[in-house]
Amino acid sequence: MSMPFYVSPDQLMKDRSDYARKGISRGRPVVAIQYADGVLFTTENPSQALYKISEIYDRIAFAAVGRYNEFENLRIAGVRLADMRGYAYDRSDVTGRGLANAYAQTLGTIFSSGGEKPYEVEVFVAEIGDEAAADQLYRLTYDGQVVEERGYAAMGGSAETITTYLAEHWTEQMTLSAAVQLAAAAAGRNDAGEKAIEIGNLEVAVLDRTRSQPRKFRRLRGDVLTALMG
C-alpha cells in the first residue's frame, strides 16, 4: 500500500488559488463603474446570447468572469434565491448584501473543501439605492472573499492595469455617456497595451434608478449604445 505524500495546508491552498487565478485571468475583464444614476457594467463579449452581465432582482445585478458553466450556476442560484425571498416575504426584503453573503459562503465552502475543485470565477454583485451614496458594489473572489468597492472596479484578465486606468480617469457623479465611454476604454486595455473594442462586441448594462419600472436593470445596445459612445 502506498502512503499519500504529506502536503501542507499552506501549499494545498496555494495550489488551489493558483489554479483558480489562472482560469480567471484568461477571461476578458469586466468593468464596473458607479455613475450619477446607478451602476454600469461593461465587458467585451462577442456573443449576443451568452451574457456575462445579468439581472438578479429589482435593484440588483450580477456580472462575472471565468468559467461560463460555473458563473451561470451562480447566477441562476442568485435569481432563485432572490425570487424565493421576494415571494416568501416581500420585494423590499431582497438585498444585495444577502445575496453577496450567500455567494461568499458558497464560494468559500467550495474552495476550502477537498472534494470539489475551486470555482474559477469572480463575481460582481451591485445594488442601487435611492441616491448615489446608497449604491453598493461587491466583488467576490473564487475563495469567498468579499470586497466592497467604491466608485469603480475591474476583474478578470489585466484587472490591475484597468483599475489603475480607472483610478486616473474616474470622477464622482459621471453622466451615463461619460461612464460608458470610460468603461469601454478601460475594458479595451491590457498589460500589453490598448485597443478599441468594436461597439458590436460590447456588452453593456446598467442599474438605472431613473427607470420608472420597479425593475431597474437595462441592457444598452444598438443605436442607444452607439449614441452614448458619441
Binding site: I76, L81, A102, Y103, Q105
Partner: peptide, 28 residues
C-alpha cells in the same frame, strides 16, 4: 427556504426555468 448561509445544492442545479416548479421542490 434556505436558512444556512451556503446556497443549497438545489439552487445551484441547472434545471427548470419555472419558479412554481422550483417552489414545489423547495418550499411546497
Amino acid at each position: 427556504m434556505t436558512d444556512s448561509p451556503r446556497l443549497s445544492p438545489a439552487y445551484l442545479m441547472p434545471g427548470t426555468g419555472s419558479f412554481a416548479d422550483f417552489l414545489a421542490q423547495q418550499a411546497p
